[in-house]
């Protein structure tokens, strides 16, 4: 994407994000309330993040056979998942995952 498109994209993202925030605060009484909507919304970040993680891990950037090329990513991600579960620390999760990934790259 060129800089012009990126600026338009960011402006549009800013407007809709603010629109969602302000709209829900100002119109709260008039919006439909449903336990099902609330539950479905909970699955959005889970699904989006999982899809992006899986796609990134399986991508090989066009080099070599897919499984051997993406193996370091999967191992690093599994380690990061474990560290995340145990420590709940953003820093430790990212740093340990990066170290495992960089070591396996060699």
């Amino acid at each position: 994407m060129n800089a012009g498109s990126l600026w338009i994209l960011v402006a549009a993202m800013g407007l809709t994000t603010y629109g969602i925030r302000a709209g829900s605060v100002l119109l709260a009484d008039r919006l439909p309330k449903s336990a099902w909507i609330e539950k479905s919304l909970r699955f959005i970040p889970i699904s989006v993040l999982s899809a992006l993680i899986a796609l990134e891990l399986s991508s090989t950037n066009g080099s070599g056979s897919s499984i051997t090329a993406s193996l370091p990513r999967w191992v690093a991600a599994a380690t990061a998942l474990l560290v995340g579960r145990l420590t709940r620390s953003l820093w430790l999760t990212v740093i340990v995952g990066m170290l495992v990934f960089l070591l396996l790259q060699r």
Binding site: L49, S50, A80, G84
Partner: peptide
């Protein structure tokens, strides 16, 4: 590569039960 790792750090605290694990695996597999 730190971006997907950040996503993992974000994902861990929001997955609390089996249905949420199922949603995550479905999205990843597809």
């Amino acid at each position: 590569f730190a971006i997907p790792l950040t996503f993992i750090a974000l994902l861990v605290p929001v997955i609390k039960n089996r249905v949420e694990i199922l949603a995550a695996i479905t999205a990843g597999a597809v």
